[in-house]
Nucleic acid binder design. Structure first.
Lengths: 191, 191
DNA sequence: AGCCTAAAGCTAATGCCATTAGCCTGGGTG
DNA sequence: CACCCAGGCTAATGGCATTAGCTTTAGGCT
C-alpha cells in the first residue's frame, strides 16, 4: 500500500472541490476520503474533524475571494471598479458555491483565527471600490455594509436559482450596478 | 402510555422552533422527538423524513414572512412602506433564523409545491412597495430583484453577526433604506 | 354499553457516518 | 544499515435516520 502523500492543504482542497460539486451539506469525511483514495480514518492524521475541515474550507474560500477581488480591482476605479467587484463576487459564488457557503456560515474560533484577516481582505477591497466615490467619511461604513449586503444577497440568490427565468438575470445585475453607482455619486445619498 | 396527539403541523412547528433555537444544521429527528415527548420513530407517522420536515419548515417560514409583510404594509406607501418591509424582514430573520435558513435553502419539489406560492407572496409584497415609486415598468423586475437582494443580504449578514460592532448596525440599516428610497425617486435610476 | 378498526405510539433492527484506539510499515535520518 | 515516526490501516463505539412489525388507544358504529 503506497502512501498517498496527503497533508492538510490537500485534504482541504479536496473537501472544497467536493463541497462545490455536491453541496456543503452533503460533504462528509467519507466522500473526501473516497475522492483521495484513502479510508476515512486516515484523514484524521491531517484534520481534527469534519467541523475543522469545514472551517478550513471557509478560510480557503475567504482567501480566494479576497485574492480575486484584489486582482480584479487592479488599475480600475469608480463604476469600473464597482462592476469588476460585483462580477467577480458573483462569478466566484456561482463557481464555488460550497466554499462560499462554508465562508458565510463560518464563525471565528478565536482572536487569532485566520478566518478574520481572510474576510477582512474582502472588506478592504470593497472599501477600495468606495474610495473611488466622494463619500462622507462618516457614511463610508454604511455604504460598505450596503455594498456587501447587496452583492452577497444577489450572488446568493442567483447561485440558488432564486430568481425566475422570465427576465435575464444579467440585465438585472447590470441595472443594479447602475443604480448603486448612480446613488453613490449623488451627494445627499446619506440623508 | 397516553397519546401525544401529534399531527404534521405540530411536528413542523416544533421543528421550526428548534431550528430557530439550535440552528437548522443541528436539527434532527431525535431532538424534535425529545421536544415533543415522543420516540423518534413515532414522528414518521406524520412526516416522511427529516428532509420533508425541513421542507415543511421552509414553507412555514415563507408563509409567515409573507403574512408579516402583508400586515406591515397595510396603509403605507413610499418610503414608509420601504422602511416597514425592510424592518419586518430583518426582524423576522433575527427572530427566526432557522425557519429563514430553511426557506432560503429550499427548492421547489414539483410544479404544485406549496413553497412556490408561499415565496411568491413575499415577492408580491415587495412589488407593492415598489408600486409607491414611479418606476419604468420595464425596470420594475430589476428593482424588485435588487430590493430582494439587498434586504436578504443585509438580514442574513446581520443574523449571522457578520458585521463588526464598531458602528451601530441600526444606523447603517437606516442609511441603506434612505439610499434605496432616494435612488428609486430619481428618474434616471435605470440608466 | 360494547366491539372494531385505523391510526399512533412503541421496540427492535439495519446501515451509514464520525470518531477513537491501536497496529503496521514505508521511507527519510543518523 | 538500523531506527523511528508519520501516515496509512483495521476494528470498535456510539449516534443518527429510517424501516418493519407489534401493541394499544380512542372514537365511531351497532
Amino acid at each position: 500500500m503506497p502512501r498517498a502523500g496527503l497533508d492538510a492543504a490537500t485534504v482541504t482542497e479536496a473537501g472544497a472541490a467536493l463541497a462545490d460539486e455536491i453541496g456543503l451539506d452533503r460533504l462528509s469525511m467519507s466522500v473526501v476520503a473516497e475522492r483521495l483514495g484513502v479510508k476515512p480514518p486516515s484523514l484524521y492524521k491531517h484534520v481534527d474533524s469534519l467541523a475543522t475541515l469545514t472551517h478550513r474550507i471557509a478560510i480557503l474560500g475567504a482567501t480566494e475571494v479576497g485574492d480575486e477581488l484584489r486582482d480584479a480591482l487592479q488599475g480600475v476605479s469608480g463604476r469600473a471598479a464597482l462592476t469588476a467587484a460585483a462580477q467577480t463576487l458573483r462569478r466566484y459564488v456561482k463557481e464555488h458555491p460550497g466554499r462560499y457557503a462554508a465562508t458565510t456560515g463560518a464563525r471565528p474560533i478565536g482572536p487569532d483565527d485566520p478566518l478574520v484577516p481572510a474576510v477582512e481582505r474582502t472588506l478592504t477591497s470593497l472599501g477600495a471600490v468606495l474610495s473611488g466615490y466622494e463619500i462622507d467619511p462618516a457614511d463610508t461604513i454604511h455604504a460598505l455594509r450596503m455594498l456587501r449586503s447587496i452583492l452577497h444577497g444577489f450572488a446568493t440568490l442567483d447561485a440558488a436559482d432564486g430568481f425566475q427565468i422570465d427576465t435575464d438575470v444579467d440585465e438585472s445585475f447590470a441595472w443594479m450596478i447602475g443604480f448603486i453607482d448612480h446613488g453613490l455619486r449623488t451627494p445627499a445619498s446619506g440623508v
